[in-house]
Design a protein around this nucleic acid. Structure first.
Lengths: 256, 256
DNA sequence: CCAATAGTGTCTATCAGACAGTATCGT
DNA sequence: ACGATACTGTCTGATAGACACTATTGG
């Protein structure tokens, strides 16, 4: 047994690793789930698309690194990036996940309201929103990270108020429902959705001013903002898939 | 911005980190949640108790390292350790979490049926089960890791079949209920618990042979084993805390 | 007018909690 | 017999899905 003991190690007894963050940044755009990707300019995987990410600085925690990288890739201001929902997903440690060296990557998921295309100086030059279903094979193990991220987001919509992170500060219940329908890939009954959302304390609160906003033609909708609850009681359970062709898969063949 | 670019880095452009795993190993023993701790023999935190853990080997993924460390700390055979439930919790990256050097730690939770005290050669000499409520201040940020682990385990009991990992291969529904009651700190109605467990497809399956086992006096219970489901449909929701000392529902006087 | 979206009300099958009652063990 | 634990059945209030209906906008 040659493991360095947890106690009393010296700085040369451990194997050094590089540590990075990888970001699965999602938005809902035109009723489709989109993910932010960057095109790789170097080998390996030159020309392939990848999740944005980068190295931790010597005295930086992973979440700070994630926010910094996100700001660099999207061109968003630090105010926007500082306030958004960032959730640690899991850490990928396969020794061969990067062919060049030993890299351990902490994956984060971020949820944004629909935004204009990333305008970018610098790193952001090659950043683009992709339909999450159409994102081809990605570099490294990023297909797996992306799939894990989608699973996690879908699950968290059930029992947290996470969905509001996809919406602007003020939103209609129709927009919120659109988020659920898009992420879950199902259609929901509007009256029932409305009832469940309003019955979950602290999920949303009505915006007082009677100003309303229209999404085109039709009756304008009342505006809401996110409440202060993070957990949903009762949860908003995903309807059981009536889809007959789903053997409850590992890799979800999603298309439409 | 002076971040090394994600592409085209050379081996000297990144900061090296040490990477460890930390393990929150739980069991249910005498209706109390217990956690496995080891006593530290060196500074810092000499004499304090800590979660077991250790460094990743140069070509080892985190989960393998977790199993290896667990085997070393508990003296369990590789067969036992190889099959048990190990769940990655999250990764802790605060630059100051270890006063000596930069250490990033991937935390795992493991669930064991009640076992004899860890007998140990080597590292396991100082390992002990502690009541999870009575575990004093731990070394490093392990109090936080332990708290996060308890939260996660409690939440996962609701919508996964995780609870069976606390039970031996064959168990009674009373033992399973005991797991829920202990982790959640509540009492459950037995008939209703039974109905919900049996109604969740794949959660448990009855053991055919009519052999039964007794926990003392009283009617012997039918044995079950874990089914093949990992997710629970419908979930086994935790009863709302009737605890009057709850800060309660935010700001909402909630009706409609 | 019609199409489209927002919002309300209601009916009903199902489900969760509560709990009474029965069965089978050790002492 | 008795206490203790396992198991079954039932009653009732709450809930979720389905869906009919009204309201308010643009064209």
């Amino acid at each position: 047994m040659t493991t360095p003991a947890p106690d009393g190690y010296d700085p040369y007894a451990y194997a050094p690793f590089a540590v990075t963050v990888d970001l699965a940044v999602f938005t809902v755009r035109e009723a489709r789930l989109h993910v932010l990707l960057v095109e790789r300019g170097q080998e390996p995987f030159r020309g392939r698309w990848a999740l944005p990410g980068g190295f931790l600085l010597p005295r930086e925690c992973a979440e700070d690194a994630a926010r910094r990288e996100l700001a660099e890739e999207t061109g968003l201001g630090p105010d926007t990036v500082g306030g958004l929902h960032l959730e640690q997903l899991r850490t990928y440690t396969d020794p061969d996940r990067d062919p060049r060296m030993r890299v351990v990557s902490v994956a984060y998921a971020a949820l944004l309201p629909d935004l204009p295309e990333p305008r970018g100086g610098g790193d952001a030059a090659s950043a683009r929103w992709w339909d999450a279903d159409g994102a081809g094979p990605l570099a490294f193990d990023h297909d797996r990270i992306l799939a894990d991220a989608r699973d996690r987001i879908g699950a968290k919509l059930e029992y947290t108020s996470l969905a509001t992170a996809f919406c602007p500060a003020e939103f209609t219940l129709g927009e919120l429902q659109q988020v659920y329908e898009t992420v879950w890939g199902v259609e929901l009954d509007r009256p029932n959705f409305r009832r469940k959302v309003l019955n979950a304390p602290g999920f949303v609160e009505a915006v007082e001013g009677p100003p309303r906003r229209t999404g085109g033609r039709g009756k304008p909708a009342a505006l809401h903002r996110a409440g202060d609850a993070t957990a949903l009681h009762p949860p908003l359970l995903r309807p059981p898939r009536t889809d007959p062709a789903a053997p409850s898969s590992a890799t979800e063949g999603h298309d439409r």
